[in-house]
Design a protein around this nucleic acid. Structure first.
Lengths: 111, 111
DNA sequence: TCCATGATTCGATAATACTCGAATTATGGT
DNA sequence: ACCATAATTCGAGTATTATCGAATCATGGA
């Protein structure tokens, strides 16, 4: 991962509403949550939330799929994994001090 | 760690110059680097760099100590550890999937 | 087809962050 | 005391981000 990519991911997460959205989606798992469900939990106007969805999507941290007239958002675990790896890879004079710092893959069983 | 604290750390890292500074300091270890040494590596005006040092310091990600007329900056590994933990603690429906996602402590031997 | 609902886009405003030249502070050497 | 050097603070200009009301688009049901 390049520095620029990391900055994009970090910037996407460095905002209270977006961080909350992402954490809710991480907790929600593969099923995700609809835009409306997220709007209920976070007291923010709909257009504002849409703006933040766009930011997170553009950064690659969340995905969306349409189902009927609902749009389901879900977390992209792989992007978070890449970021965690980037943030830890230069630790300790370049010698990796962790075998792996990663969030669960959605396709695998949670440990 | 509260969401607000995480946002503060993420925002501090979500900027190209600051992220580069932090990574250089992580690599440099406990000895750290002087402001001048960092300025040499990153082609940014001195006042701009000072601005970013202040941001990183305020977020608690770096520390500074004066030595003669040089100021040595160094990474605060503990802050990064807290952030990594926060980012992974809600993974997988709230069940932690990692024993620990952490960067090396400076006082401990690197594994 | 018409309406209700879920969600986004548009547009305007307010707030925040970034950059760097010039001036300033602080330290150490002569 | 003086000067050179390391670094910061000040101030002003520019750019980016966040917010939300109003309008729009899209889907599904009656």
């Amino acid at each position: 991962m390049e520095t620029n990519d990391a900055v994009r991911l970090l910037a996407a997460l460095a905002q209270e509403t977006r961080l909350s959205v992402f954490r809710l989606l991480v907790q929600a798992g593969a099923a995700g949550l609809t835009a409306g469900a997220l709007a209920e939990r976070l007291s923010v106007a709909n257009p504002t939330l849409s703006f933040h969805f766009k930011e997170l999507t553009h950064a690659g941290l969340i995905r969306s799929r349409q189902e009927g007239r609902y749009i389901h958002y879900s977390a992209n675990y792989a992007a978070m994994n890449d970021l965690l790896q980037f943030l830890t890879e230069n630790c300790c004079q370049g010698v990796p001090c962790l075998p792996e710092a990663s969030c669960c893959e959605p396709e695998k069983e949670p440990r």
